[in-house]
Design a protein around this nucleic acid. Structure first.
Lengths: 149, 149
DNA sequence: AACTAATTGTTGCACACGCAAATATAGCGC
DNA sequence: GCGCTATATTTGCGTGTGCAACAATTAGTT
């Protein structure tokens, strides 16, 4: 076992820890949001991403990147939210291939209801993960990433 | 904006970063493993988890936790791998509800082929993520979690 | 101006997933 | 031993996902 092999194993272990914590958080967010706001995690992510653009538009592709979803999944995700009246598609004049999406009042309202649910679930799950020895160091490292706001 | 609100926002941002990096890595691993070893990421995870048990068994439920999958998804995942001859189910004598799974020689062989592909893709993706300002701090923090092997 | 290449978003299709219900076994109280 | 509850795994069903093919628009080349 040389130094190089160790690095490989350290990376693999880091990835397993990352994946485990991700799975834990996502599952708990899914339960909470679905139960108390009729939103899946990706649906919440879309609404949140749009709202953080300060009332401005987002293209489908930006949305796809923000949600780590494929283009086709993004199309159908936006379809669902549009059917529920939470956002609207806006054809863009200067590039007629592009399509902007914007939150409706109804979307903003639902997001306002869902955000505390989301934040509480996140806090709860992180506290729970901190009790798991395998996950604790990553949980501790997380808030330090963006400590200055 | 008080101290408490800041903590909420810091947690949310940490979670977004975690999710973004997770999505990036998983997508790249999926492409590489699928293309060069006919394995999905979860399928690789199963084989890897089994091999790290040092040739010992694993129950379905342990597998479900290791993969962050539901029980039903785990059943079908094991079905697929069993159909391909990569692992075998072993009924356990002392608890006849439980079912152990064990790698076959064929499974060990495929894993040996897939592991370098996996490790290379992981290293490549982490290097790529380090170039993204938003992700870099998390990438840097990752190897420090298990620095002592 | 015409042709080709690149980009953006949508649809067809197969497949993996989660939830809830069903089945089988274990463990406990009496 | 009998009944009851808890645990382990599997099946039915509906739904969300990625990939590949497609349509529409833009940008680059000659």
């Amino acid at each position: 076992m040389g130094i190089k092999d160790d690095a490989v194993e350290v990376r693999a272990q880091g990835w397993r820890t990352l994946a485990a914590l991700h799975g834990l958080i996502e599952a708990e967010l899914e339960r909470s949001l679905q139960g108390q706001a009729q939103l899946s995690v990706v649906e919440y992510t879309v609404l949140d991403a749009l709202s953080r653009q300060d009332g401005w538009h987002m293209r489908m592709q930006q949305l796809a990147r923000a949600t780590a979803l494929s283009a086709s999944a993004t199309t159908r995700l936006v379809n669902r939210l549009e059917d529920r009246g939470l956002l609207t598609r806006i054809l863009c004049a200067d590039d007629r291939r592009g399509i902007y999406t914007e939150l409706t009042d109804s979307g903003n309202k639902l997001l306002a209801e869902a955000r505390p649910v989301h934040d509480a679930a996140l806090e709860r799950t992180l506290a729970e993960a901190q009790q798991v020895p395998e996950l604790a160091p990553l949980v501790d490292a997380l808030p330090r990433l963006h400590a200055g706001v």
